[in-house]
Design a binder for these strands. Structure first.
Lengths: 333, 333
DNA sequence: CTGAAAGCGCTAACAT
DNA sequence: ATGTTAGCGCTTTCAG
């Protein structure tokens, strides 16, 4: 930058100001500076800039399992919104484990991110999250998490899951098994609650034998569903609470040679690009991932820019696609 | 850091050294420093550290379409390898467009990343890549890209695609259509070359009417395949060259009410988690994404650490899963 | 084994 | 409209 200043015959200060548009510069001198920049191939050092200015234009994102297409789309949406605003994304994988999560977020904090978006692991509200808020770093929770007094955006879980269940109930099913996701995270809980509420509204109790925990693993789900569906009094319908669970469930059903919906009706939370391709086409609750990601970025950016308002808790509507895995007689198409 | 030093009764210099283990410190004083750190809740400022030390422990990754599960897994693998080495990942999406790519990589360079991994967009070798290498920033190309004298790691494309095609040929097909991905990127070219080579080895010429360009869009692929398969002299087999093309192709086939493999045999490049679930199960060439990602991270880390050797061009083997969409009589399982 | 001091490359008052 | 100057918070010679 010194070089540029010298060549343009101005001070470093002026160079800085033309670079950032932070104050009025005579157009003649600006031109000289720009020429000098061009000539030297100068590229500013954002690290130094960050140190001096006290802001990094950087946002940290902590999620688990980028392998999951759902999170891939989420990151994609967040990245786009941030880069449009001149921010850059630092990515950390928490592996859905508080310890890793603490390491990840610590590292982000050390790097002076201007804000953070986190899809909290189970138990995060007791350890990771308070640590972040204590630093004053703007934080928005995404996908899941409890109310800890910060912005939060996630899908509508309860009612979507409830509808999915009621639909099966309407079709006459009385033994509906549910495959839950990872325990301890709000999305699992809320979706399960929706399931329970649907049963309750029909005066039915939840049968513990029909509740399967797939943790966050496709394999576990497959094994458990296989076990359940091998029993003589197997359920007549299956509902899966997230995309990994769905894959495990479908694998189990397939392995047993059962057919959907003839032998067992099926519907699931989370849509796939191939839901339409599956035979039968899957009845699924589709989250609006793009909106969730973009909204999170927006909320965060607003906080970063000093916007000071009551924390918002946003639920993005979930859309149910009635297709035919549920055995629905009147599926569209 | 000044606070910590004062409380521990040492100099900032010593604090720095206990923090980084950069020189021997008497265990008594180290204990005092550590206590002071604990007590103050001190967290180092990595930005300042980076500026002073001249390295950021940061790696930039430029890819397109995180929405694609393939890239999601890639990022996942890279992230893990990097974080194990104490590095952090900054993510940028190039949208498979050189202009965006230039912006992304410029921004990464400004941020003084210690190295970069890029899945180059078409034409990148003429504009983006030289700019990077000129800065001396270690660079490794991933997934695709031509030889520009830097490390490169990607899947084995040619022979896998050739095998896929030969297999169809072996099954008696003579009119095999191919659905290509985005033009101008090496993976598309190499896979198409594999297809051509297979035909050539049987003394067959490539029929231009059987070559479909799906660009990078599922929708385009669907439309084109639909057109092709509606013709009276439609091909007897279809081969798709990447996962997006596969989805488009399958949608088209499904929409036409054709059945696989009875009406048309099918095989594809890229495996899905649900390939096994599809009816019929998909014959596919599976890339070893994890290995590709981890290898790229490794190569880069090595360069960053000053390892100076001839650029490596690594091809990670692609595995063909023979299932039954190809109409294979003896598919395993 | 430890401290002093000179930067790293930039920003942002404060002057003029 | 532009320049001067004092840092931002750390690392790292160089001394002792």
């Amino acid at each position: 930058m010194g070089d540029v200043a010298r060549i343009a015959g101005v001070s470093a200060s002026t160079v800085s100001h033309v670079l950032n548009g932070t104050r009025k510069v005579d157009s003649a001198t600006r031109l000289r500076v720009e020429a000098a920049i061009e000539q030297t191939g100068y590229r500013r050092n954002v690290v130094a800039r960050s140190l001096a200015a006290g802001r990094t234009h950087t946002v940290g994102l902590s999620i688990s399992a980028l392998t999951n297409p759902y999170f891939g789309s989420l990151v994609h949406a967040v990245e786009r919104a941030l880069s449009d605003a001149g921010f850059v994304l630092i990515l950390g994988d928490s592996h859905d484990d508080v310890e890793s999560e603490k390491r990840v977020t610590d590292s982000l904090l050390e790097r002076q991110v201007d804000g953070m978006i986190v899809a909290p692991a189970a138990g995060s509200e007791r350890v990771t999250l308070p640590k972040i808020t204590r630093t004053g770093t703007p934080l928005v929770l995404i996908d899941r998490g409890v109310d800890i007094g910060c912005d939060r955006v996630g899908p509508e879980n309860f009612s979507a899951s409830q509808s999915l269940t009621e639909h099966l109930l309407d079709l006459g099913h009385r033994r509906i098994a549910v495959v839950r996701g990872l325990a301890g995270i709000s999305s699992t809980t809320e979706r399960f609650d929706g399931y329970c509420a649907a049963l309750a509204s029909r005066g039915m109790a939840v049968d513990a034998d029909l509740v399967i925990d797939g943790h966050s693993s496709t394999d576990v789900a497959e094994r458990e569903v296989r076990l359940l569906m091998s029993a003589r009094d197997r359920p007549t319908a299956l509902i899966s609470l997230n995309n990994s669970m769905t894959i495990g469930t479908l694998k189990a059903v397939r392995a047993l040679g059962l057919s959907i919906p003839a032998d067992v009706a099926f519907s699931c939370f989370d849509d796939f690009e191939w839901s339409d391709l599956f035979e039968p086409r899957l009845t699924a609750a589709a989250q609006d991932v793009e909106t969730i990601g973009a909204t999170a970025a927006d909320l965060l950016l607003r906080r970063i820019h000093g916007h000071d308002a009551a924390p918002q808790q946003i639920r993005v509507p979930t859309t149910i696609h009635h297709r035919n895995s549920c055995g629905c007689p009147d599926a569209n198409r």
